[in-house]
Every structure is written in structure tokens, then in C-alpha cells.
Design a protein around this nucleic acid. Structure first.
Length: 769
RNA sequence: GCGGACGUGGCGAAAGGGUAGACGCAGCAGACUUAAAAUCUGCUCCGGGAAACCGGGUGGGGGUUCGAGUCCCCCCGUCCGCACCA
């Protein structure tokens, strides 16, 4: 029995694909195109099996569509700017460029060994000046169009990475990469005006039909549109006003207090003369935005002593508080509290002994008897205790209050959003330099186009924390392009989401002198199938959608949405292991003894933790090289596709991959030593067949139909199961019916073509056997 | 708290209102072998039965339907996202 030699076979076919430039494509206007893209990787070191699930799915789609006759663009590149390279430089004395290049080389080799059908002629790395020069130009165009601007603002400061994080990058009050508790600092920053497209970005979500519902919902919530009203409260005895935002203007007659954010300008001004308030504000700021801290903290307020006049009933006054639960960044940084109809306001009112006046009557309640206990009434009902609003339903009351406020000039109906502009400045070396120059007399001067790209200097010093660009002895000192006077370069670099917001366009025109050629983009875009992790559901995917619109406004493209189809795949998980000292262990360091207990290399017992996403930090990673060495790329690919539905997490198991290897061997045996003699290729199938052979033919064709349908719908695990059913039937047939050869051949050929997108090397070899 | 997804054998899972558990993993028994590995054959939801077969079974409770894992309502649980968002 000849054993399937995956090593030689896989190398052979990879060589042939490469030498034949089989996957290099060109624009062919007469042919239908299909653009398959997997979210490009950050070159962090080595690939583990968790990384390649994503690429295996993309490759399946690419090869499947290619087999259907599409002109398939399937490129690969490197999201090459980022902090790990700089951290490696700090820790190991290696230059970020060198570290990144080395990693790219390693990882490219790993991808090649997997046999992925990439058009490598289009490969790009975002740290290449030939790449980032184009985004510098884009930035200058955004600047001219008013889509990029500078703003002095409070920022999230990551004290470990010494950089600013976007609000979107702060998770539970911690930096999304470093995990450090984020501090507040005031800095002058560059922003991209994503809010210029808020409504468009929100409304177009409905057109993204081939996106997961979950992702569309997350984007919707992120943009967070809410309709309500701004209302002006006059401060009693002063000429000053406090403007609040509310989504419940209908409950205005139930107002019993006003609350300001601790960062509200009025609160800060009052604190200058009120020591206790200053201390309260300081305390609120110390809480930060950490979820754990906020959850532990109860709602607290500080009474300012000010009284506000009710805008619709001047005879009524309400107290003004500063409260730890009011956000400066949302609405106007001030609210009115209506305890009867908002749970948070009710909790606050009970704590500080404030009145609770119901103004919306629940259906069926008696207006003379109804009272609010511990639970605010937040549903629809009929207004009462509300003068001209009495007897209206909530929606009608909202309208009526809005109109009255507008008549009186004391407010207006308005819509607010949660979405904020995208801060793109980073105080880091390993990123794209922001192409502007600060001149003492001219102010901010764009770098002239002829001077692009602004390249990173290579001789930099990473010994100190902070931005090496700012410390570089000569790099930043340049004459002002406008007046020729003494000036300095901007030393901030772009957030790396800048690069990933347009790389899919560059893949259309890899060598072009401009960012891309319009005819290429018209042909290839949009991406027909984008595949990546759900962790990018908001940031990367929303920024890319914004970028397309910004580029369109600047005349680059004529397209709004970059990704027509999106699939978010589950993660690859593995158990975690810790030794007695709590140190994480790699799976290969753990071995079972004869009683099945797990031991570390020193023979001490190992604690088994729950299965989690493979990550370097917990060492629960299975190296790709070892798997490919032992079982081959095809086996790894089929395992990643077969075991769980693609959108769900997949548990990596050694026994699972062994099972796939047995199947691979069996498939090979079926063609190299067929169960019945096979007629030559193309031989006719006899007109009269025994019943079992008719059944087999039927199953063959049903399998083709079902697998096609499954692949269209990303049900890869089911497709694999159906192919296995067919091969089981093929294996059984020879004994069951004489003269099976021609039907067997037909079935084997079908099976071979069906597994081709999943196990391309084996399929090629079977086809040629 | 709000929004969403999900809950099926020992495990991963399948089931497009119509035979629940396809396809695998693990396990058990057997064949081949001096032996092991590999390979092959059979069994493998639970209870009863030698078997045919009978009864039960998709987190719990109710409902719609000739028929519900699937649709509707309530509850329990797990996971994910968002969040003092006014």
C-alpha cells in the first residue's frame, strides 16, 4: 500500500502554481470578477493554527469562485505598522523595520506552505514608503476638504504605550492592547471628521445585505443616534443658562433636579470657589472610565447651591447638582432629572431626598392614587400633571413640548449621536508620519506634494519612553515650505487603522504611481467577500466605510461601501495550562502520565483551564509549522473547515486532526488502489445499471448540488460531511455491484473536484493519478 | 440594565415545520499481526427486550399545528456586544 506522501506532493503543486503564475490575475472587463479578501495580518512573529482558519476559509471561497469561472482577485499583504515592533525595539534592540521584515518573511513562508491561492505579485506592506506616501496625500486632501482638523481635546493616555487611544480603543478603561489603566490628558490632536458622514454611515447599514446582522447592529449602536431636545434652564438670579439634552422632553414637568457632568465648564468654574465641589470633581475624575470601578461606585452628586428656573413654568425651581454619572462627551454634558420616569434619576432622587412627581400615567391607573415606588415607569402612558400636555400620549407630548420650547426660544428638538470624530494622532515612531509642518509665523503648513513621502528616519533611539521622532536630533527641523523660516515637522504618526482603511484599494493597482487607478477600482471593487474576526466589527469596518466616503468626496473613487459581503469567523480555542507556580505552559510542554494526569516537563501536576482563544499571552497556541510538518497543509485545512460551523468557535484537538489525516490517507487509497477497476477517463456510463449503481449516481449528483449550496452559504462543516458521506458510499460500492467502475470513476471525480477548494494539493494529485 | 446569539448523545455537531442525533471525535467488541502501530468490520441517546420491537428523549413550563429541536409566550442558564448614552 503506497502511503500518501503529502510532503513531496504539496511542495510539487505549490511549485507548479508558483511557476505557472496560476493565481496572478489581471483586469479582464469581459469576465465577471470576484474579490475575496481576508483581513490582512499584523506581522507579529509566527502564525499559529488560530490565524490560518481565516485564510483557509478565504482560500476555499477563492478557489471555489475560480472553479465557477470568476476572475478571482485574492491578495495578501501586511498591516505592518504598530506598537509590537516598537516594543520589540525597546526590549531587544532590534530596529522595528528589521523586526517587521523578518516576521513578514517567516509568515509569508508559512502561508506559502499552506498552499493558499494568493496573487503574491500584489503583496504590500503598509510600512513601505511606496504605500504610505499615498495616504499622506489622502490626508492632505482630507485637510483641504475640511475632513481632517486639529483640536485641543481631552484624550485617553496610555501610560504604558505612551500614546493616545481613540475612545473606541479604550476597553473597560484600559488600553485595548496594553491593558494599562487609561489616564486623561489634554493634547492637541489630529482628527478625521467621521461625524460628517454620521447619517450616511447609519442609513447605509441597511444596504449591507450580506453582512452579519450582529455586526450591523453593533455599528448601529456605536453610531448611537437618539432623538430628543435641547432645553435651556435659566439660573435663578443670574443671566446665565444651563443647556441640557433629553430624550424625554415629554417628562419636563416632572423635572426635580438638574445634573452637570464633573467636567462641565460651569462645574469647573464653580469649583474654583467651592473647595468641597473641587474635591468631589477630583474624585470623579480619579474614578476614570474603568468599568470595574464604575460598577462598584454608587451614583453620587454634589449640590451646587444654584437653582434653575423651569423653562415652561417660571414659578418652579429645581436644584442644580454635579453628578458622577453625567458624561461631558454626550449631549450637552448636563441633564434634567425626572425621577418618576427614569430609573437612574429615581435612585438619585431617593438618595438625596428630591421630589418624585409622576407625569405619565400608566394605562388603567387612577391619577389620584398612582405613586412611584422603587421602579420608575418608563413605558408609554397618558400625560398628566403637565398643564398643556395633559391627556396626550408620550410621542405626541414630545412633539408638543418641542414646539412650545421652540416658540419660546428656550429649546429645540434635536438629534444627538454617540459617534465621535476619529483621533488619528499617535506619539509613536513606527507609523506613518503626518505630513504637516508647524511654522511659527504661518501656522500649520501642509508638506508640498512634491516632497512626499515624508519618510521615517532610520537612526532612532528607543532607549527612552515616548516618541523617538520628537527626540530625533535633526529630523523634525525643516524650513517652512511657505515662508522659508524656522519650522518643525509634526512628530506624531497615524493610528494604524489609517493604513487598514484603504489597503483593499491598493490591492487593485499594486504598482501604480498614484494610490490606485480608477479603472482598476471600478473593475475590482467592492470586495465581494471579506472575511475576518468579529473583533473588528466596529473600528476597522466603520473606519473603512468612512474612508470610502471621504475618498469619494475628494474625487478618488465613485463608491460608498467597500465590502459587499462580510463573514466573521469564530476563533480557534485551546485549553490553557498552568504549572504549580501559575506560569502558563505551551500545550507541547504538557504530557499525560499512565493514569491520564497531566504533568509539566518537571513531572509536576498541571492545572487545566478553560478553553480560550489561542493567544501568545496564555501560551495556548498550537504552532502551525509542527502541524504542517506532521500532517501536511491539506489535513490542517480540512480540520479547520470541518469541525465546527465557521462562525462558531473551534476547539483544536489532536485527535480531531488525526481523524482528518486518516481520511486523507483513505481518499488517496481510493484513487491509487480503487475498489473496482476504473475505466479510462471519459469512458461512457452504461445505459443500464444495477439499482445500487443508480442510487450511487443519484447520490453523487445530489452531493454536488448540496455542497454547492453549502459553500455559497458558508456552511463548510456541512459540505465536508456531505463529501464524506459520498466517499463512504463510493468505498462501499465495489462489493455491492459488479461493473461499478464507470460509476465509481464518476463519483471519485466529483468528490475530487468538491474537495479541491479545501484540499487543493491532494485534489490535484488525485486528479492526475 | 439594554441589545443580540445560543441551549440537541461522553465531545464537535446535523436536521430548509415531516424518520432527532447525518458526518466526525472518543469509546467498546472483533478481524489481520509473534506483538504493536496502521487498516478493516460491527456496536455505540436512555429504559425494557435474545430479537423484531415497545416506551421515553432536543434546558424547564405552556401554546399554535394533523405533526414542533424548528414557530409563539413565560421562565432558567451560558456566551457576546454596548453602557451611568439622559
Amino acid at each position: 500500500m503506497s502511503r500518501y506522501n503529502f510532503r513531496d506532493t504539496e511542495e510539487k503543486w505549490q511549485r507548479r502554481w508558483r511557476d505557472g503564475r496560476v493565481f496572478e490575475v489581471a483586469r479582464e472587463p469581459a469576465r465577471p470578477k470576484y474579490y475575496v479578501l481576508e483581513m490582512f495580518p499584523y506581522p507579529s512573529g509566527k502564525l499559529h493554527v488560530g490565524h490560518v482558519r481565516n485564510y483557509t476559509m478565504g482560500d476555499l471561497v477563492a478557489r471555489y469562485r475560480r472553479a465557477q469561472g470568476y476572475n478571482v482577485l485574492h491578495p495578501m499583504g501586511w498591516d505592518a505598522f504598530g506598537l509590537p515592533a516598537e516594543n520589540a525595539a525597546i526590549a531587544g534592540g532590534i530596529h522595528p523595520a528589521r523586526w517587521t521584515e523578518d516576521n513578514i518573511k517567516t509568515m509569508r513562508g508559512q502561508l506559502e506552505r499552506m498552499g493558499f491561492a494568493y496573487d503574491w505579485s500584489r503583496e504590500l506592506a503598509t510600512c513601505d514608503p511606496d504605500y504610505y506616501r499615498h495616504e499622506q496625500k489622502m490626508f492632505l486632501d482630507f485637510l483641504a476638504a475640511g475632513l481632517a482638523f486639529r483640536k485641543e481635546s481631552w484624550v485617553n493616555w496610555d501610560p504604558v504605550e505612551n500614546t493616545v487611544l481613540a475612545n473606541e480603543q479604550v476597553i473597560d478603561g484600559r488600553g485595548w492592547r496594553s491593558g494599562a489603566i487609561v489616564e486623561k490628558r489634554l493634547l492637541s490632536q489630529w482628527f478625521l471628521r467621521i461625524t460628517a458622514f454620521t447619517d450616511e454611515l447609519l442609513e447605509a447599514i441597511a444596504t449591507l445585505e450580506r453582512w452579519p446582522e450582529r455586526v450591523r447592529l453593533m455599528q448601529e449602536n456605536w453610531i448611537g443616534r437618539s432623538e430628543g431636545a435641547r432645553v435651556q434652564f435659566e439660573i435663578a438670579g443670574k443671566k446665565e443658562q444651563i443647556e441640557v439634552f433629553t430624550t424625554r422632553p415629554d417628562t419636563l414637568f416632572g423635572a426635580s433636579f438638574l445634573a452637570l457632568s464633573p467636567n462641565h465648564p460651569l462645574a469647573e468654574r464653580l469649583a474654583q470657589k467651592d473647595q468641597a465641589l473641587a474635591e468631589f470633581i477630583a474624585e470623579c475624575n480619579r474614578l476614570g472610565t474603568s468599568e470595574a470601578v464604575i460598577e462598584a461606585a454608587e451614583k453620587r452628586g454634589h449640590r451646587t447651591g444654584l437653582e434653575a428656573v423651569h423653562p415652561l413654568d417660571p414659578s418652579r425651581r429645581v436644584s442644580v447638582y454635579v453628578a458622577n454619572f453625567v458624561l461631558m462627551e454626550y449631549g450637552t454634558g448636563a441633564i434634567f432629572g425626572c425621577p418618576a420616569h427614569d430609573q437612574r434619576d429615581l435612585d438619585f432622587a431617593r438618595k438625596y431626598g428630591l421630589p418624585v412627581l409622576p407625569v405619565v400615567l400608566p394605562p388603567g391607573e387612577d391619577p389620584r392614587r398612582f405613586a412611584v415606588g422603587d421602579t420608575a415607569f418608563v413605558e408609554d402612558g397618558k400625560l398628566y400633571n403637565s398643564q398643556f400636555l395633559d391627556d396626550l400620549a408620550v410621542p405626541a407630548a414630545k412633539r408638543a413640548v418641542g414646539e412650545r420650547l421652540e416658540e419660546l426660544g428656550r429649546g429645540a428638538r434635536t438629534t444627538v449621536y454617540r459617534l465621535r470624530d476619529w483621533g488619528v494622532s499617535r506619539q509613536r515612531y513606527w507609523g506613518c508620519p503626518i505630513p504637516v509642518i508647524h511654522c511659527k509665523s504661518c501656522g500649520i503648513v501642509p508638506v508640498p506634494e512634491a516632497d512626499l513621502p515624508v519618510r521615517l528616519p532610520e537612526d532612532v533611539d528607543f532607549a527612552l519612553p515616548g516618541n523617538p521622532l520628537a527626540r530625533h536630533p535633526s529630523w523634525k527641523h525643516v524650513p517652512c515650505p511657505r515662508c522659508g523660516g524656522v519650522a518643525e515637522r509634526e512628530t506624531d504618526t497615524f493610528d494604524t487603522f489609517f493604513e487598514s482603511s484603504w489597503y483593499f484599494l491598493r490591492f487593485c493597482s499594486p504598482g501604480a504611481a498614484s494610490a490606485f487607478l480608477p479603472q482598476d477600482v471600478r473593475y475590482w471593487m467592492p470586495v465581494d467577500q471579506y472575511i475576518g474576526g468579529v473583533e473588528h466589527a466596529v473600528l476597522h469596518l466603520l473606519y473603512s466605510r468612512f474612508f470610502m466616503r471621504a475618498l469619494k468626496r475628494c474625487g478618488y473613487v465613485d463608491l460608498d461601501e467597500p465590502f459587499a459581503g462580510l463573514f466573521t469567523q469564530g476563533m480557534v480555542c485551546h485549553e490553557t495550562y498552568q504549572d504549580r507556580d501559575g506560569e502558563w505552559l505551551f500545550p507541547e510542554e504538557v504530557a499525560a502520565d499512565d493514569k491520564g494526569r497531566l504533568l509539566d516537563p518537571k513531572g509536576r501536576p498541571v492545572a487545566v483551564g478553560r478553553s480560550e482563544k489561542m493567544s501568545k499571552s496564555k501560551k495556548n497556541v498550537v504552532g502551525l509549522d509542527a502541524i504542517v510538518d506532521t500532517y501536511g497543509a491539506d489535513t490542517a485545512r480540512l480540520y479547520l473547515l470541518s469541525d465546527s460551523p465557521p462562525e462558531r468557535d473551534l476547539e483544536w484537538t489532536e485527535t480531531g486532526i488525526e481523524g482528518i489525516w486518516r481520511y486523507v490517507s483513505r481518499l488517496w487509497r481510493m484513487v491509487s488502489e480503487p475498489a473496482a477497476p476504473l475505466p479510462p477517463a471519459g469512458a461512457a456510463i452504461p445505459a443500464a445499471l444495477a439499482a445500487p449503481l443508480v442510487a450511487l449516481r443519484r447520490q453523487t449528483h445530489k452531493t454536488i448540488a448540496a455542497v454547492t449550496d453549502d459553500l455559497d452559504k458558508f456552511r463548510f462543516n456541512r459540505a465536508v460531511a456531505r463529501i464524506r458521506e459520498l466517499t463512504n458510499a463510493l468505498d462501499d460500492i465495489a462489493a455491492a455491484a459488479p461493473g461499478a467502475g464507470a460509476v465509481l470513476r464518476e463519483g471519485l471525480e466529483a468528490a475530487t473536484r468538491l474537495i479541491g477548494p479545501m484540499m487543493p494539493h491532494l485534489a490535484e494529485e488525485m486528479w492526475h493519478e
